[in-house]
Amino acid sequence: SQTQRTQDENEARRIAEEWKRRGYDVEVRNRNGHWEVTWD
């Protein structure tokens, strides 16, 4: 799996939607004030 971090929730949601469209299983988490998008 791969993880991308961002400070911006909207960006995190956009990234998550992009990977979901490509057929990946995606998880979005808030950790210590930043957002992590993990896909595999």
Rank of each mutant, 00 (worst) to 15 (best):
S1H: 12
S1K: 13
S1Y: 12
S1Q: 13
Q2P: 06
Q2N: 13
T3G: 06
T3M: 11
T3S: 11
T3I: 13
Q4G: 05
Q4T: 13
Q4L: 15
R5T: 13
R5F: 13
R5A: 09
R5I: 15
T6A: 14
T6K: 03
Q7A: 13
Q7Y: 11
Q7N: 12
Q7I: 09
Q7W: 11
Q7G: 08
Q7H: 12
D8L: 04
D8K: 04
D8M: 04
E9W: 09
N10I: 11
N10F: 11
N10H: 12
N10T: 11
E11V: 06
A12E: 00
R13K: 10
R14A: 12
R14D: 08
I15A: 03
I15K: 04
I15H: 03
I15S: 02
I15L: 12
A16S: 05
E17F: 07
E17T: 06
E17I: 06
E17K: 07
E17W: 08
E17C: 08
E18H: 12
E18R: 07
E18F: 15
W19E: 02
W19A: 06
W19G: 06
K20T: 10
K20Q: 10
R21E: 10
R21V: 09
R22P: 01
R22W: 07
G23N: 03
G23L: 02
G23F: 02
G23S: 01
G23C: 14
Y24F: 10
Y24R: 05
Y24M: 05
Y24A: 04
Y24P: 00
Y24Q: 03
Y24K: 04
Y24N: 02
D25M: 12
D25S: 13
V26P: 03
V26N: 01
V26G: 01
V28W: 03
V28R: 00
V28H: 01
V28K: 01
R29H: 14
R29W: 09
R29Q: 12
R29E: 07
N30I: 12
N30K: 13
R31V: 15
R31W: 11
R31E: 11
R31A: 12
N32H: 09
G33V: 02
G33N: 06
H34L: 14
H34M: 15
H34E: 12
W35R: 00
W35L: 01
E36N: 03
E36H: 05
E36Q: 05
E36P: 00
V37L: 05
V37Y: 02
V37P: 00
V37H: 00
T38F: 11
T38I: 12
T38Y: 11
T38V: 12
T38E: 07
W39L: 07
D40C: 14
D40A: 15
D40T: 15
D40G: 15
D40V: 15
D40H: 15
